[in-house]
Design a protein around this nucleic acid. Structure first.
Lengths: 174, 174
DNA sequence: GTGTCGGGTTCAATGAACGAACCATGCGAG
DNA sequence: CTCGCATGGTTCGTTCATTGAACCCGACAC
C-alpha cells in the first residue's frame, strides 16, 4: 500500500496497513472469518474484479494472513483459510465493525457467545461468562429487526448461507 | 473508497472502511491521536502529497472524525482535532497497532496508563488499576531498546517532539 | 469429442495518487 | 510601503492502481 519512503516511519501501524490496508483486503478477511474459503465465493459475495481478488489473496498468503491449500474434492482448486496470525486480526476487525455500527450505519449482524448464547457487548465481552471469547467461540447472526430496508438483499450463495446463524471460522457450505 | 455497488452490502465494516479505509487516512488519525493538529505538521511527518492530505482531511471532517477550527493565533489557518467519534476509533487503531507489532514488525512505542504509569497489556488493559483507559489517559513513549536500527530517524518537528513521552490527544508543540 | 464450471490471467480504459509548480494570505524586517 | 518568507492550500501533467470484459486452462460430465 504505502510507498517505500514510508519504511522510514518506525511505526507498526504503517506496517500493518501495508498488509491489510489495501482496498478490499479487510473485507476479504472478514469473509474469511465467516467461513468463506473458495475463490468464487469471495468473488460472488464481494463483487470484486477477479484480477484484484487474485492479487489480494496472493498478498494475504504472502504475508501470512491466509494459507492456500489444495481443495481435496477438486484437483487444481484451492481453499483459502486464516492462519493464526489472520485469526489474530479479530479484535481489530471487531473494533472497526463496532465503530462503523455506532458512527456510520447500524450494524446488521450481532455476535453471541457460542457456549452460552448471550449477546456480546461492544468490547466483545460476554457479561454472563465474564470472558472475551475468540472468534472460534462466537456465533454471528442477522439482527432480526426493524425494516432491514436498503434495496434488495444479495442473493449469492454466501449471502444466503449467512442468513442463518453461523459460528465464525467454520467453513461455509460444504 | 469502495465503489457504489458496495452499498448493497448491508455491512457496517464496509461503511467504516468507506470513512477510514483509504490510503493514508488511518495514519492521519493516528497522528491526530498524538496531538498533531496543523496541516504542515501532518504533511511533514507523513511525507504525503499536499493534494492528498487536503482531500483526506476534508473527508475526515465531512465524516465527523475530525473538526476543523480556525487557528486562534493565525488567521486563515486551521486546526484539525478529533471529534468524539474520532476518539472512538482508539480501540480499533490500538488493535491494529498491536497486531502489526506482533505479526509484522515490532512496535517502536509503548503505551502506559497516565494515572499510574504502568504498562498496558496488548488489550490496552492496566493490570494494576484494573481498567482499560481511554486515549486521554494514555501516555505514549518510545520503547527504549535494542538497536533501533532501521535507517536514520526522521527529523521533522513532529518526529522530534514525539521522542519525549506524550499524553494522547494533547496538542503537540504550542 | 463437446460442454461447462471453477479458478485464474491478460488487456484497454478509467480513475486515483504523486510531486512539482503555482497562488493567496498574513506576518516581520528594512 | 515593499520585500521576503512561511503557512495552507489548489492546479496540473505524469504515473500507478483498479475495473470489467475477454480469454485461457484443467477437471469432470456426457
Amino acid at each position: 500500500m504505502l510507498g517505500k519512503d514510508y519504511e522510514q516511519q518506525d511505526c507498526s501501524l504503517a506496517r500493518a496497513l501495508e498488509v491489510i490496508g489495501e482496498r478490499w483486503t479487510l473485507l476479504i478477511v472478514r469473509d474469511a472469518f465467516h467461513g468463506v474459503r473458495r475463490f468464487n465465493d469471495f468473488q460472488a459475495h464481494l463483487d470484486i474484479p477477479k484480477a484484484v481478488l487474485s492479487d489480494r489473496l496472493s498478498g494475504l498468503v504472502e504475508n501470512g494472513v491466509l494459507q492456500r491449500t489444495p481443495d481435496p474434492g477438486h484437483a487444481g482448486r484451492h481453499l483459502y483459510e486464516l492462519t493464526p496470525a489472520g485469526r489474530d486480526l479479530w479484535p481489530a476487525l471487531h473494533a472497526l465493525l463496532i465503530w462503523g455500527g455506532r458512527h456510520v450505519a447500524p450494524n446488521s449482524r450481532v455476535f453471541k457467545h457460542a457456549t452460552c448464547g448471550s449477546l456480546l457487548d461492544e468490547a466483545g465481552h460476554c457479561a454472563r461468562c465474564g470472558v472475551t471469547p475468540g472468534p472460534q467461540d462466537i456465533v454471528s447472526e442477522v439482527r432480526r429487526s426493524r425494516t432491514r430496508g436498503r434495496a434488495a438483499p444479495r442473493e449469492d450463495a454466501v449471502a444466503v448461507a449467512l442468513r442463518e446463524p453461523h459460528r465464525l471460522l467454520e467453513p461455509l457450505g460444504g
